[in-house]
Nucleic acid binder design. Sequence first.
DNA 1: TTAGGGTTAG
Length: 253
Amino acid sequence: MRRRHVPVGRRILEQNIKARYHARDIGTEDALHLFDELLPYAGRSSIHAINCLLTVVGRDCPALGASLFNRVARSKVAPSSITYAILVDCCCRAGRQDLGHTAMGQVIKMGFLADAMITFSHLLKAICAENKTSYAMDILLRIMPMFNCVPDVISYNILFKGDCNEKRSQEALELIQVMVEHGGGCQPTVVSYSTVIDGLLKEGEVNKAYSLFCQMLQRGISPDVVTCSSIISGMCKLHAMDKAEEVLQQMLD
DNA sequence: TTAGGGTTAG
């Protein structure tokens, strides 16, 4: 197959953008200038560099990120599934969850299903942030599978956090047990356990939190500094100093 | 082969 010719100047610019993105060496202003420089003569190979720039701008100013997406859509460059993931995140963080849903619909329509769960996860996070975790749960358990989109552990972790923020850590605890028993390849990780343990402690459930910590150890999942900081802090606040010391000792071991 | 998603304390 013949390699498509890419102008040298454009290729250098794209490589420069990717390298600087990787080195975390692009600020929002830089990204905007680079975007203006690249877009007029961008081609098929440019979408990776454009995604880097959208990410930088969107982190700082999601509404601006979404408006840059519109400029990409009007250009010769086809947005990729990753571009849509960035867009959905920008829309949600700009307070336009409705537009996030619309963009999600576009992702499904275009058949970007392999990556759709990451795009969905931005929506799930936004829905949970509005204390509508039950609705997020419905999307995860019912809607996502309708599109052959299998939720992964990060999608579940977003829901665990949502439940805990709504003071419903018991539901998160039940869901973690469902994952263990029926999750197949999608098993809770150290982040899942840390999130739910923290939620239980914030609701005063010392014994349940400690049992879950023990289950985690039994299943061969090592606690990290987040797990331990959370447990020690939580248990001290609840005056469960004996258990806090046990956890500290396990950490030292 | 890479650009996009998850946890704590203060």
